[in-house]
Design a protein around this nucleic acid. Structure first.
Lengths: 205, 205
DNA sequence: ACAAAAATTGAACATTGTTCAATAGAAAAA
DNA sequence: TTTTTCTATTGAACAATGTTCAATTTTTGT
């Protein structure tokens, strides 16, 4: 039975992912060490390289899991039959909640630098794209005349702006902004963007 | 004469900073190596540690110079006797120009992670603060009723949003957004934020 | 039970940042 | 100028890292 082998390899991969996730949560992605992960899993360093291409590959897999968790969190929070404005506001707030609750996993998404030469695997790009699609959904109702490309562009811009604000606020090591104040800012800013988009839309022929 | 000594040390520091700047421009901040810098300067590795505390300190000095260059670029571009809206738009566009012209130096500002335990030196925090003050200037005219704290908060939010948009667009390794389109987006977004701010201001007592 | 195949191991290697005893150089004293 | 003292510079040595691969152990098929 070759099933046993596959099961073992799958278990190893799972344990490596779990240990890495746990270590990122505890110390941050910059502090991930191959020997450290191996020790936590109870295997030799070399085994890590039989389950994943290298450390970057392992971390990328953790990051992809994080993207999926984020996607689930946003999907779970999505209100039924709410106005697109309410949906967008909820998305922004849920993003903030996820970022502050899983801070180190979340920063790992952006702090981990993929080797410049290598192409990012398609399955990871797909996981990123899913995020923008979540935003493009309600946006489509607000901009019925926009085509899919333009919708995705606006979704990316919206995400980037909110992301920028959250990043700057959460990374402050000295004057950390209070989370309820930050949430109010995010909500205010979301409304601001949406009303701006709406105005532009109304002006169209 | 102890002047000769001081001059030599100052020259060494300058050369180290120049070499590091050049290497960051060429390969990015992640690729900075102590031995490599020393070889470019023509000194021993150890000398680097007599001029700067460590590699992080050296890179932080380069980053602070970059912040100063950015501040100069924004100051130089500042129009006389223009509306605050025009000023903000110009700031955002000049920021985009700086980021795309000095891409690797600019990303080093955010990619270089300062050791978690150590406090960031005050002179570097001051250089950061100067940026927000540049934005707070025109913002003060738009929000005459706001106090300095609130102005700085709004300035930070404005910066963070624009920064987020520029970061996401410039880092795209696959579908790089055309710069003129990006500039249009930035301008549109700036107007959007400003009109939103104005509306909120008008509603106040 | 045995042999072939595969998986696992961890010592070994190449590269890092950083240190520090030894050397070279500059300043002061004779 | 010569000698002595202090300082600056050097680069071999160290510890920590990611990664590899010959040797070993485990699993599979008969």
């Amino acid at each position: 039975m070759s099933d046993k082998r596959e099961a073992k390899k799958a278990a190893l991969r799972t344990h490596l992912l779990e240990a890495t996730t746990q270590q990122i949560c505890q110390k941050g992605v910059e502090e991930i060490r191959a020997r450290d992960i191996a020790k936590h899993v109870g295997c030799a360093v070399g085994s890590l390289y039989t389950a994943f291409e290298d450390l970057d590959d392992l971390i990328l897999h953790v990051n992809s899991q994080t993207l999926q968790k984020l996607d689930e969190a946003l999907t779970k929070g999505r209100p039924d039959q709410a106005s697109p404005q309410t949906c967008m506001e909820k998305l922004a707030c849920d993003y903030l909640d996820f970022a502050s609750t899983h801070y180190r996993l979340w920063t790992a998404l952006f702090d981990h630098k993929w080797p410049e030469g290598k192409a990012v695997p398609q399955w990871h790009l797909d996981n990123q794209q899913k995020l923008f699609l979540q935003i493009a959904g309600p946006l489509k109702e607000l901009l019925p005349k926009a085509d899919q490309d333009h919708l995705l562009l606006e979704a990316r811009t919206f995400f980037a702006a909110i992301h920028g604000i959250i990043t700057l606020s959460l990374q402050e090591r000295y004057a950390a902004v209070d989370k309820t104040i930050l949430k109010q800012q995010i909500i205010k800013f979301t409304h601001l963007i949406l009303s701006g988009l709406q105005t532009q839309e109304d002006l169209k022929p």
